[in-house]
Design a protein around this nucleic acid. Structure first.
Length: 377
DNA sequence: TCCCATGATTCGAG
DNA sequence: CTCGAATCATGGGA
C-alpha cells in the first residue's frame, strides 16, 4: 500500500517550505478525480491510514472554520425581505394562505360588491366564475408550493448526507452543514417567492377582470326602474328611503341595496338639476301611484299603511294608466297619506331640494316604519 | 360615430 | 356612515 505514496508526480514541483509528506498527501487529493473508482477507494483508504492524515485534517479544519465564518458573515445580511412579506400579506388577504378554505377575498369581498345590472342571476354566475378561478389559482399555488417544499426537503437531506459522508474525508463541521442548508433554503425560498409573485399577478389579473366586468354598466331591468321611480315620485316630498325601504326596493327590483342607494343619489341630484326634464316621467308615475295609493288605502285593513309602491303587491305592477290624471307634484305630495302629519314637514317640493340634510329632518332613515315611512306613524 | 342617458365611483362635508 | 356633487365609463338609440 505504500507504493502510491512513494511514487510522486514528477511534474509537480514540491513547495519549498513544506514537508514532502504533506505535499504528497495534497497532491494525491488533487488528483483523486483522475482515478477510477476502485483506484480512488484504495487511495482513500491509504490516505486515511497515512500518518500525516490527522495533522493535515486538523489544519484543514482550521482553515475551513475561518472560511465558514466568513461565508456566514456574508449570508447574514440577505435576511429580511420586505417584498416577500408584501406577497405573503397579499396572499393572506386573498385567502390563499390555506389550501381550500373559503378566503375573505373569495366570497365575502365579492358578495359585497354591487351587481353589474338588474339581473341577479348574472351576478351569481359571475361570482361562481370568480370563485372557481380563485379556487383554481389556489389549487395550483398550493400544489406548486408543496412540490417546492418537498424538493427542498429532499435536496437538503441529500446534501446533508453528502456532506456527512464527505466529513470523513475532509473537514466538514456541523456549522458548515447548517450553513449549506441555509443556502439551499435561501435558493428555494427565492423560487417560492417567484411562485408567490406569479400567484399574486394571477390574482391581480383575475381581480381586475372581475372589477372591469363589475364596472361595466348595464341598465336596470324595466321592473327595477319602475319600482324605483314609483317610490321616488310618490315620495317626492322626501325621497330618502329608509334602510328597510331600500331593501324592499332592492328585492322588488332584483338589484342590490347599494344600487338602490346609487340610484336614489343619482335621481335626486339629476331631478334637482333639471326638474323640467322629469315632468313627463313624474306625471306618469304620480298618476300611477295615485291609483295604487287609492287602491291600497281601500284595501288596507290592518295597521300597516300601504303606501304607493305597495309592498304587498309583489306581482307585476298594474299598468293602470288611469287616464292621464294630471296631478302636479305638489298635489301628489299632499296626497300622500300621513296620519301622523309629520311626513310633509318638508313641504312637498323644495324641502329636500333646499339643501335639507335628510338625516336631521323627517328622513325615513330613522323611521322604523320601513317602506311606508311617509304614510305611517 | 356621435350624443345622451344612466349606473358606478370618488371626494369632501357633516 | 350618508349625502350632494362631480366625474367616469358604458349602453344604446339616432
Amino acid at each position: 500500500m505504500d507504493a502510491p505514496l512513494r511514487s510522486p508526480w514528477p511534474a509537480q514541483p514540491p513547495p519549498a517550505p513544506r514537508r514532502p509528506d504533506t505535499s504528497d498527501v495534497l497532491q494525491q487529493i488533487m488528483t483523486i478525480t483522475d482515478q477510477s473508482l476502485d483506484e480512488a477507494q484504495a487511495r482513500k483508504h491509504a490516505l486515511n491510514c497515512h500518518r500525516m492524515k490527522p495533522a493535515l485534517f486538523s489544519v484543514l479544519c482550521e482553515i475551513k472554520e475561518k472560511t465558514v465564518v466568513s461565508i456566514r458573515g456574508i449570508q447574514e445580511d440577505h435576511l429580511p425581505d420586505a417584498q416577500l412579506m408584501r406577497l405573503d400579506n397579499m396572499l393572506l388577504a386573498e385567502g390563499m394562505s390555506r389550501p381550500e378554505k373559503r378566503g375573505r377575498g373569495g366570497s365575502a369581498a365579492v358578495a359585497s360588491t354591487a351587481t353589474p345590472g338588474g339581473c341577479p342571476n348574472d351576478n351569481n354566475i359571475e361570482h361562481s366564475d370568480y370563485r372557481a378561478k380563485l379556487s383554481q389559482i389556489r389549487q395550483i399555488y398550493h400544489s406548486e408550493l408543496e412540490k417546492y417544499e418537498q424538493a427542498c426537503r429532499e435536496f437538503t437531506t441529500h446534501v446533508t448526507n453528502l456532506l456527512r459522508e464527505q466529513s470523513r474525508m475532509r473537514p466538514v463541521s456541523p456549522k458548515e452543514i447548517e450553513c449549506m442548508v441555509g443556502v439551499i433554503h435561501g435558493k428555494f425560498s427565492t423560487i417560492q417567492m417567484q411562485l408567490k409573485q406569479s400567484t399574486c399577478e394571477a390574482l391581480m389579473t383575475l381581480r381586475s377582470r372581475f372589477l372591469d366586468a363589475r364596472r361595466k354598466r348595464r341598465n336596470f331591468s324595466k321592473q327595477a326602474t319602475e319600482v324605483l321611480n314609483e317610490y321616488f315620485y310618490s315620495h317626492l316630498s322626501n325621497p330618502y328611503p329608509s334602510e328597510e325601504a331600500k331593501e324592499e326596493l332592492a328585492r322588488k327590483g332584483g338589484i342590490t341595496v347599494s344600487q338602490v342607494s346609487n340610484w336614489f343619489g343619482n335621481k335626486r341630484i339629476r331631478y334637482k338639476k333639471n326638474t323640467g326634464k322629469f315632468q313627463e316621467e313624474a306625471t306618469i308615475y304620480t298618476s300611477k301611484s295615485t291609483v295604487d295609493a287609492t287602491k291600497a288605502r281601500a284595501l288596507e285593513s290592518q295597521g300597516s299603511c300601504l303606501s304607493v309602491p305597495s309592498p304587498g303587491s309583489s306581482g307585476p305592477f298594474p299598468l293602470t294608466s288611469a287616464g292621464d290624471t294630471f296631478l302636479t307634484l305638489q298635489t301628489l305630495a299632499f296626497l300622500q297619506p300621513s296620519p301622523g302629519g309629520n311626513c310633509l314637514q318638508s313641504q312637498a317640493r323644495g324641502g329636500w331640494q333646499g339643501a335639507m340634510p335628510p338625516q336631521s329632518t323627517a328622513s325615513p332613515t330613522g323611521d322604523p316604519s320601513s317602506i311606508n315611512s311617509d304614510a305611517s306613524n
